[in-house]
Amino acid sequence: MKQSDGMTVIVKTITRMSVWLIILYGIYIILHGHLTPGGGFAGGVIIALAFLNVMLAYGRKYTEQWLNVRIMYDLVSTGAILFLIIGIFGIALKGSFLANILDLGELFKLESAGVIPIIDIFIGVIVSMGLFVMVWTLAVFHLEDGGEE
């Protein structure tokens, strides 16, 4: 099958050079969610698009070797559970669900706003891994037994 072999050499080279930059940009957007526009949702989609870029350019088999997709399924659930655990810590320490339990810090600093950047990271994990897993499932299904029978 031609589709599983990926695209031309040009596309593969550009993808190899740019994919880590895209992931780095996504991480930047997630971490600066409380200072600049962006946050967990936008950064998560950027990271998912970087993985998707690899999948489209190199094909399914190579991506399966490069990434461990099973761990991604688990990371989605882990992100959701950690979000909940932070909420329960809020009950234990401050008396209300999802209360801001950490030190607030100084305005306009990266390590400020207490619990907000941490929740942002968890949301980024849920969104990026979840969306990639979704597209992965669609692609695997389509290649195995899409229109045949």
């Binding site: 949702f41 979840g130 969306l131 979704m134 669609l138 229109g147």
Partner: peptide, 24 residues
């Protein structure tokens, strides 16, 4: 709206999965 956009994408992907299933 920020949260609603994310949910939209999830719903779109789920509808696509259903449509592919139905076609099969």
């Amino acid at each position: 709206v920020l949260t609603s956009i994310v949910i939209e994408l999830g719903i779109t992907a789920m509808l696509v999965a259903l449509a592919v299933r139905l076609y099969q």
